[in-house]
């Protein structure tokens, strides 16, 4: 067992009805103790994939193993040994924090005391509210409780479906800090997110779009695969700037990026040429500087290549 990967997925496909291809020949592996991110927008197939691994859906084709167990045949074993947190808050709102945790500990055949060590860091933050009904917790607190409930039986693999969606930045950051600490306890974590900026917090990520995996690599690897010269440009008129840059002959792509436009070039040219071009289009306050590609640049590049 120890030699197998924590998660192995081989040519997995899933259709809903006739027309919706949720997953298309997806393959990847997650090593033991790895924090693996599944990054993609809504409708990319993240939830479907996680549900197949959680034995809640059956794939149409392909194979998937969790901790060496096959998801269709050995579903009972998998269910006893994984922690699963669905995308929606799925605890009992009318039970208190303590009651929820006690309930999930018991149905997994364990007790809170037995694995308290594992959740202690997270649970101490909830402790002051332990008599409060789960439905009355703030968004971030709910996520922490859900994580505790998914961890209470000391799972070997943790499947988290968009745990940070709809949660404010502070809670998001805290949540990722918790995942980092869990990783140190050798729990394999597969986490999905639509937020591209969270990719850099994972060991490795798979970028996924419309049921296809665009790329699998370390975050740094994905960014460095973006090989076009990249500039950040801004002027007084954002809207015209985007359109004018797209008509520029050396432009590969131009996308707004916050207060700048990220301009990817077909070939390296002098910024002065761009400056002159924009000045000719009556832009003022022109600023052009080299830019560091982000996961989003890489994602968009991969999307347009499709």
């Amino acid at each position: 067992m120890a030699t197998t990967q924590a998660i192995q997925v081989e040519s997995l496909s899933k259709r809903y009805g006739k027309n919706v291809q949720a997953l298309n020949q997806v393959s990847f592996e997650v090593g033991r103790g790895e924090l693996f991110g599944l990054i993609g927008p809504d409708g990319a197939g993240k939830t479907t994939l996680i549900r197949i691994l959680a034995t809640l859906l059956l794939a149409n084709e392909g194979q998937a193993l969790v901790n060496g167990w096959e998801v269709r045949r050995d579903y009972r074993k998998i269910r006893s040994h994984i922690g699963y947190m669905p995308g929606r808050f799925s605890l009992y709102q009318d039970l208190s924090v303590e009651e929820n945790l006690h309930f999930f500990a018991t149905i997994f055949g364990t007790t809170i005391e037995e694995n308290y060590e594992l959740i202690r860091d997270i649970y101490v933050q909830l402790e002051p509210f332990r008599k409060r009904k789960a439905g009355k917790l703030s968004g971030g607190m709910k996520q922490k409780l859900a994580l505790c409930c998914a961890l209470i039986h000391k799972p070997v693999v943790l499947l988290l479906d968009e745990p940070t969606t709809g949660v404010d930045p502070v809670s998001r950051q805290e949540f990722w800090e918790m995942l980092k600490r869990l990783k140190e306890k050798e729990i394999t974590i597969l986490v999905s997110t639509p937020y591209m900026d969270e990719a850099s917090l994972c060991d490795r990520v798979a970028l996924i779009q419309k049921g296809n995996i665009l790329s699998i690599d370390k975050p740094a690897g994905i960014v460095s695969a973006f090989d076009k010269p990249l500039l950040a440009v801004r002027t007084n008129d954002m809207y015209r700037l985007i359109h004018d840059l797209r008509e520029f002959e050396s432009t590969h792509s131009a996308f707004p990026f916050g207060e700048y436009v990220h301009l990817a070039l077909r070939n390296a040219i002098w910024p002065e040429a761009i400056h002159a071009y924009l000045a000719g289009k009556e832009h003022t306050d022109i600023e052009i500087k080299p830019a560091q590609a982000t996961i989003e640049d890489a994602f968009m590049e991969l999307m347009t290549q499709e």
């Binding site: 969606t165 779009q209 809207y239 985007i242 707004p256 994602f299």
Partner: peptide, 21 residues
Amino acid sequence: TGGVDPITRRQFWEMIYKAAS
């Protein structure tokens, strides 16, 4: 714009820029 892919998100912002302009 939560949850959409980065290209669609930018198309959305371009619409906003247009309206603002």
